[in-house]
């Protein structure tokens, strides 16, 4: 998905940097667009005190923007996480500095990749619920979302790997 998006981005940038660059600059910098948000239900999960939120971020502007933090009243702790190789093992860890959305591009938060980790949940989440989620960005914008809870359809380990390898 990332590769495809980078390829798509090239003509877009060429267009933006062409003879109309001056006029382009006069257009006020547009903000981040948030789409396709969902939270994984805890029903059926091994650990029902934590889950993750996934979504797509689009940055139509010409400067990089970072997702710097997220909060939700249903979770005592909310962190921005990444999956990374560490000592030959895939681990999940807090992403330092937040999640970057490059200028004129998309960033997808998805199972197996960057995600918003909701921990110390105050209640179990079942499919069909809706949870409030607030996103804060480096351009000082805030997005208040109402996010649907969807069924747990992949193995838990995809976004929350077991600590030991077989």
């Amino acid at each position: 998905m990332k590769t495809k998006l980078l390829l798509l981005l090239v003509p877009f940038l060429l267009g933006a940097c062409g003879s109309n660059a001056t006029q382009e600059a006069a257009v006020s910098t547009p903000g981040i667009l948030v789409e396709d948000a969902w939270v994984r239900a805890t029903t059926g999960a091994k650990d029902t005190t934590m889950t993750a939120a996934f979504l797509s971020l689009t940055n139509p502007g010409d400067t990089e923007v970072k997702l710097t933090s997220a909060t939700s009243p249903i979770a005592a702790v909310v962190q921005l996480h990444e999956m990374a190789m560490q000592d030959g093992k895939m681990v999940m860890r807090e992403k330092p500095g937040g999640i970057t959305v490059p200028a004129g591009s998309h960033t997808h938060l998805s199972p197996g990749g960057d995600h918003i980790m909701l921990m110390s949940l105050k209640q179990p989440l079942k499919p069909g619920d809706e949870v409030p989620l607030t996103l804060k960005f480096s351009d000082n914008t805030t997005h208040d979302l109402k996010v649907p809870v969807k069924a747990f359809t992949e193995e838990e380990e995809h976004y929350h790997p077991t600590p030991s390898t077989k």
Partner: peptide, 15 residues
Amino acid sequence: AAAGAAATGGAVVAL
């Protein structure tokens, strides 16, 4: 995208 028709307007012009 759900959020900003005005925001994407800039991109339309460029394209």
